[in-house]
Design a binder for these strands. Structure first.
Lengths: 307, 307
DNA sequence: CCCGATTACTTGACAAAAGCAACCAATAAC
DNA sequence: GTTATTGGTTGCTTTTGTCAAGTAATCGGG
C-alpha cells in the first residue's frame, strides 16, 4: 500500500503536467489541424504504411471518426490510400509529400516551443530535467516506442547544404575520397535546386531525434526520357542499422513508379558494399561497370530497376 | 540554444505522459461527469467561495460554457449560488453537501487509480518517482498552488471512528485530559450516528493530501428547539495554521443559518485558548462559565452565536 | 449626479469533435 | 456453401466548445 503523501504528490504532478501540456498544445491552434488530427499525422509520419484499424487502435479513436479524418486528409492531399493486395478490405495509408511537409511544419512548431521552454533553463537544469523525465518513464514502464524512430520529409531550405556537407565529410572519412567527389556532389545539388521539378523530382530528408540523419533524391535523367535517377543517398553512421537507407531507397521506387517513369537508375562505386545490398534487395541490378577515373580506387557502376 | 536530443527527450516524455494521463482519466468515465465538469468540481472543492469569472479564468473556460455547467450543477444540487452583497453582479459559488460528497467520490476514485499504479512499484521506486516529479515541477516553475491545500467533505463510513480516536489522543496529549473525555466524545459520536438527521445535522471532515486532518459537526441541541450545537471540532497539529479550524467553524455557521436555526451554541473549556479565538472571530460570545467537573482543570464555558 | 465604459453573467445560435449503430464488401471459419 | 468476422464507410446523434449579443450592476470620470 503506497503512502498517502506519495499518492498525492503523483496527483499533483499529473495536474501540473496536464496544465503544462495544455499550454504547449495551444501552439497547435494556429495550425489548420485539431489535436486529434495532429496525433493522426504524427502517427502516420512515424509508420511506413498502416491501416486505419491499426491507427485507430493505437490512438484509441472511433473507427467512424477516424474514417472521416482520413477522408478529409485524402481530400486535402495529405494522405494517400492504397488497397492492400493481400487483403482487399484494407487500405494501406501513407503520407504524401504534402503530408510529410505538413507534419514537418507541425513538428518544427512543437519543437520550437519546447526549445523555447528549455532555453530558459541552464544547461545543468536541462540535464536534470531530462534525467528526471527519463526516470519517470522507466519507472512507469514506458515500453520503447515500436514506431520507426525517424521520420521522412521533403527537403526544406537549408537541407541541401547539409546534404552537401555530409556527403563531403562522410565520403572523405569513410573512403578517403578527395575533393573531386565534393565538387561532383555540389554540382548535383546545385542542379537539383536550380531545376527542381516538383512533379517529377523529389528529395527526402530522414530526421531522427530532431536531427537530419539521411537523404536521398530522385531526379530526371539528364539524357534518357522516362528514366529517373536516384542520387545523394546518405545515412549518418550513428543512424545506421535502423532501416533508414532501405526506406529511402524504397521511397524513391514508389515515387518514381507513381510519377510515371519506366526505369530508375543510379550510379555507385564498387567500394560501397552496404549500399549494394540495399539496391539488390530493392530489385536493382547492375548494368555496367567501368574503372572510376575521378576519385577513389573502386570501379564506377550503373544499377537499374524497371518499374 | 538547447541541444536537440534534450528537446526530443522532453517531447517524448510529453507524449508518454499525455498517454499515461489519458489512461488515468478514463477512470472518470464511469462517473456522471465529463472531464471539464470534473475540473470544475475540483476547483470548487478547493476554494471556499469563488465567482464564475474566477473559475473560468483559472480553468481557461469560455464564460458561456461555464455558465451552463454551473447551471446544470445547480439543478443537480451540487452547487449553490449566492449573490455577493459587495457586488450584486457576482455570484459566490460553493459546493453543497452533495457537491462535496460528489467530489469526495471522484477524488477517491482518482486516488485509488494512482495508488494502484504506485502499488506496483517498490517503496524505493515510489520515492524515486516522487522525487523525479518534484524535480520536474520545480524546474518548470510550478508555482505553489494558491488554492486552499485541503478540502472539506461530509463524513463517510469510518470517519467517525477516526474523529473519536483523534479526539481521545490529541486531548490527552495536549491537555492531559483523562478517559472521561474520551467517554464523552464517544457518547457524542454514538448519538450523532444513531440519530443523524441529514436535514438538520451535518459533519465535515477536512482532508489534506489524502489524509483526514480535521472535523466538526453541527447537531440539534438536545433540549432547546431551534438551537444548533457545534461539536467535535478538531484540527490535527500538523495541519494547523492553514485556516482549517476557522473554515470548519464558518461552515457550521453557514449551515446552521441555512437550516433555519436561530442560534448556535458550543461548549468549550477555558484551557482551549486557540479555539477561543476562532469562536470570537466568528461572532460567538461566552454566555456562561462554571468549574469543570469531569476532566482537566479549566472551567467549562458555553458560547453562543445568534444567526 | 449623470453618462459612457466596463464587468459579471446569461442566453441563443452554431460549429467542431466524438460516439453509436447500421451497413457493405472482403475474408476467414466451419 | 454458409455463417461469422473484419476493415471500413456512412447517417445520425450527443457532447463539447465558441461566438456574439443582451442584461444588469458597477466603475470612472466630469
Amino acid at each position: 500500500m503506497p503512502l498517502a503523501p506519495h499518492t498525492e504528490s503523483v496527483r499533483r504532478f499529473s495536474r501540473f503536467y496536464t496544465r503544462h501540456i495544455g499550454v504547449l498544445q495551444e501552439g497547435l491552434l494556429d495550425s489548420p489541424y485539431s489535436l486529434t488530427e495532429g496525433r493522426v499525422i504524427y502517427e502516420l509520419a512515424h509508420r511506413e504504411e498502416t491501416t486505419a484499424t491499426d491507427l485507430g487502435q493505437e490512438l484509441g479513436l472511433d473507427a467512424g471518426y477516424l474514417s472521416r479524418i482520413l477522408r478529409s486528409f485524402g481530400r486535402r492531399g495529405l494522405v494517400k490510400k492504397r488497397r492492400s493486395s493481400a487483403d482487399r478490405r484494407r487500405q494501406l495509408l501513407s503520407l504524401t509529400a504534402e503530408g510529410q511537409a505538413a507534419f514537418a511544419r507541425l513538428n518544427a512548431a512543437s519543437r520550437n516551443q519546447i526549445e523555447a521552454m528549455l532555453a530558459e533553463l541552464s544547461e545543468d537544469d536541462q540535464r536534470r530535467l531530462v534525467q528526471a523525465m527519463g526516470t519517470i518513464e522507466s519507472l512507469l514502464g514506458a515500453q520503447p516506442e515500436q514506431r520507426v524512430p525517424y521520420i521522412l520529409r521533403p527537403h526544406q531550405s537549408g537541407d541541401m547544404g547539409w546534404v552537401l556537407q555530409r556527403h563531403a565529410v562522410l565520403y572523405r572519412q569513410e573512403y578517403g575520397w578527395d575533393e573531386s567527389m565534393e565538387a561532383l556532389a555540389a554540382e548535383v545539388v546545385a542542379h537539383f535546386l536550380r531545376h527542381f521539378d516538383a512533379k517529377l523530382e523529389r528529395c527526402w530528408i530522414a530526421e531522427k531525434d530532431g536531427e537530419n540523419v539521411g537523404s536521398v533524391a530522385v531526379v530526371k535523367h539528364r539524357d534518357r526520357a522516362g528514366v529517373a535517377q536516384l542520387r545523394l543517398l546518405l545515412v549518418e553512421p550513428k543512424a545506421r542499422g535502423l532501416g533508414i537507407g532501405r526506406r529511402l531507397v524504397h521511397e524513391c521506387t514508389r515515387f518514381a513508379r507513381h510519377a510515371g517513369y519506366h526505369t530508375i537508375v543510379l550510379w555507385t562505386d564498387s567500394v560501397l558494399g552496404s549500399a549494394r545490398r540495399l539496391y539488390e534487395d530493392e530489385g536493382y541490378h547492375m548494368v555496367s561497370e567501368e574503372p572510376n577515373e575521378s576519385f577513389g580506387e573502386g570501379t564506377a557502376q550503373v544499377w537499374e530497376l524497371s518499374l
